[in-house]
Amino acid sequence: MSAETVPVETLAARVRAQGFAFVTADTMRALLQRGRGLDGWDRFAASWDTLAPDTYLAALGRHRRRRHAVFSAAASGAIVREPHQPHYQALHYNRLQGDIERWFEPMLDEIADNPSLRLILEFCRDFFAVLAPAVVAWHIELHQFRIEARTDEPGEPTPEGVHRDGVDYVLVLLINRHNIASGTTTIHASDGRELGHFTLTAPLDAALVDDGRVFHGVTAVTPLDPSQPAHRDVLVVTFRACESA
């Protein structure tokens, strides 16, 4: 099915039916652009080269780089960046690093204001509103991730294993893959049954996940050429409903 034949309501119906949807890059590009260009995309993607080490995982012998930002949005109107704050997940959701406040380096201001990122945020707000029309305001967190794969140590996109994030909805958007194999996303029911799997391979390939209904995980990535750098770059956007704007 081409991008032109996948309206938002059809995509929303997939998420309602199975708890997730895999969206190809061509379809995602059409959904984001809405007749406009993805202005600033090259600068946006290049910002993954500026990510800071995830010192929390480094303490456990794992290698990941990231930046973090928090936004808020009403059902319509401006999407506003909030002051920098920690990322927190309960131990129930993150068995590896739950119940602690994790302070990551903030997303750069010029990236938070990047036109491509703003299109992504607007799409998410409008799409998740189709799934949850009664929500009046959203708490939004953005995570820029670079998972590094090394000769002696595969990269782990989800070191906590198959999990939920403890939010309402999640977008996982591939920015780039360089010299890696695997990285397959799996979706699971609460009893552990696998409901589907797919691999984000092209920039703008995406997963839309109803985090309240399904669990997700990603298999480890390994270098294709062990002598060269290898990494997987993704943007993760989470939406959690708030009681008021």
Rank of each mutant, 00 (worst) to 15 (best):
residue 24 T to F: 05
residue 10 T to G: 06
residue 49 D to R: 11
residue 1 M to V: 15
residue 237 V to Q: 10
residue 129 A to D: 08
residue 86 P to K: 07
residue 96 L to V: 10
residue 14 R to H: 13
residue 144 Q to C: 07
residue 52 A to E: 15
residue 176 N to Q: 15
residue 210 D to Y: 09
residue 199 T to H: 05
residue 134 A to F: 03
residue 160 E to W: 02
residue 106 P to V: 04
residue 233 D to Y: 04
residue 27 T to I: 08
residue 9 E to Y: 04
residue 233 D to M: 04
residue 129 A to I: 00
residue 1 M to C: 12
residue 93 Y to G: 04
residue 69 A to M: 09
residue 134 A to N: 13
residue 239 F to R: 04
residue 5 T to F: 12
residue 25 A to Y: 01
residue 72 S to H: 09
residue 245 A to D: 12
residue 238 T to F: 00
residue 208 L to W: 03
residue 149 A to M: 02
residue 138 W to V: 06
residue 90 A to Y: 12
residue 213 R to W: 02
residue 139 H to K: 15
residue 92 H to F: 11
residue 18 Q to M: 07
residue 211 D to L: 08
residue 217 G to Y: 01
residue 62 R to Q: 12
residue 226 P to Q: 10
residue 22 F to K: 00
residue 28 M to T: 14
residue 209 V to S: 05
residue 14 R to F: 02
residue 191 D to P: 00
residue 25 A to W: 01
residue 78 A to P: 13
residue 185 T to K: 01
residue 148 E to N: 11
residue 179 N to F: 03
residue 145 F to K: 11
residue 38 L to Y: 08
residue 53 P to K: 09
residue 29 R to Y: 03
residue 25 A to Q: 04
residue 100 I to W: 03
residue 69 A to C: 10
residue 54 D to A: 07
residue 40 G to M: 02
residue 224 L to Q: 15
residue 177 R to S: 05
residue 153 E to V: 12
residue 175 I to G: 13
residue 202 A to E: 14
residue 211 D to G: 12
residue 137 A to N: 11
residue 208 L to Q: 04
residue 26 D to I: 00
residue 196 G to M: 09
residue 135 V to L: 07
residue 190 S to N: 14
residue 95 R to Y: 01
residue 145 F to N: 12
residue 191 D to E: 11
residue 166 G to W: 00
residue 206 A to I: 03
residue 208 L to M: 08
